[in-house]
Design a protein around this nucleic acid. Structure first.
Lengths: 209, 209
DNA sequence: ATGCTTGTGTTGCATTTGCAACTTTTATAA
DNA sequence: TTATAAAAGTTGCAAATGCAACACAAGCAT
């Protein structure tokens, strides 16, 4: 798992943050980050606590876009946080380091070894993000509920090198990930079982044949 | 628009590629890149020509995942090119530079200024990629055809600062981007017009109200 | 233990959607 | 120009899906 400060010592970390003119802000539980920070191009690093990126739809329903934990990053630039529907909320008291993204890109920093490590770590994290998003797009672009489920299951099976695996999500979350109605999903899972394509027992899924 | 060699001179570019142990390969029109390169963790930079990332579904239908042009990058790591359904095809005679992704991440290169510029450019490109993917996920996760269309239209309108704009896609491509049936999409567009929510004339869309 | 919340499992029903099969229009190439 | 291909526009219909409304189980906190 990539981390933005990987291979960077504590002292170097603070030197780096100073060079980058980073600021560390404290947010108490259930407060909005976007209420306090400008929507400029920032990268936020969750130093402690936990936050959620959420979307509020026209009905007022809240959709959790992502759950971030210590060490995770988010960005007002490449997340859709410029969009009015989106917000980011501290789920616990949290400390967040903000770094100016344009300043990173401007390249007028010293070429310190830890700065270069920081860049490499950022690339690694972004690579993981791109990969996760590609995987999600890959399932979301399937037309039917059945195809979405099977694509997701086969991917998990391939990743875990076994035909039998445990879901990372609960069923409610899986429906949200696949962006389908939960009850319709349950119905389709039953059909997959009736058709002897899968077997399930709780969160354990087994791909047959 | 970001470019991987931005702010890097021609001489420096070749020095950099040598340091990174990059190789440049030639692919003639309509040949598969994955047939010739290993599926190791590579970043490919399209030096000249054009390539497409495609997915072949179980019916044998080919879905174009992305169209790459000069300067664009792709990766066997964070695209889904490890997936058997995916392939990457030269649409014209093309020259492609391959760089080992793990080698970039290993950080055991010299701290030359052009190497740092390269890293920064890579971050910028990946940032754009993440943003584009987030935008697509944002529309794909809408439940109905109408919501998908309106979300897409409102985004375009906001981006272009006008209620009247020209589609970047043709309607066939738009349906593919939204992952919906084209005829169903056309039907819904007609309903949006009937309901006086939009007006269209060719690729020109006007949002009413 | 008791209540409360969250997740699972199910069903009926109206609506939406994909699909197939067309025609017409617009581009593109010979 | 004329063929040819690609895109736009329609429609009927069966199937899939979302939604609402449940019952029930599991987890959690007081």
């Amino acid at each position: 798992m990539a981390s933005i400060f990987k291979n960077i010592g504590v002292k170097e970390k603070w030197k780096l943050l100073k060079e980058l003119e980073a600021t560390r802000l404290y947010f108490s539980k259930n407060t909005s980050l976007l209420r306090r920070i400008s929507k400029a191009n920032l990268i936020g690093v969750l130093d402690s606590g936990s936050v959620q990126i959420i979307r509020t739809d026209y009905n007022g329903n809240i959709i959790i876009i992502s759950d971030l934990k210590e060490g995770d990053i988010f960005s007002t630039k490449f997340s859709l946080l410029d969009n009015v529907e989106y917000d980011i909320i501290a789920k616990e008291d949290s400390k967040i380091i903000f770094i100016d993204y344009d300043y990173i890109l401007s390249g007028n920093q010293k070429k310190s070894s830890y700065y270069q490590k920081f860049l490499i770590n950022l690339i690694e994290i972004m690579g993981e993000l791109v990969y996760a998003q590609n995987k999600r797009i890959n399932v979301l672009t399937r037309k039917t509920t059945r195809e979405k489920l099977l694509e997701y299951f086969y991917n998990e099976s391939r990743k875990k090198f076994t035909k039998t695996f445990i879901l990372n999500f609960n069923y409610t979350e899986l429906a949200e990930y696949l962006s389908i109605d939960r009850s319709a999903m349950m119905r389709e899972i039953k059909r997959l079982k009736d058709d002897k394509i899968i077997e399930t027992s709780g969160k354990r899924i087994r791909l047959l044949n």
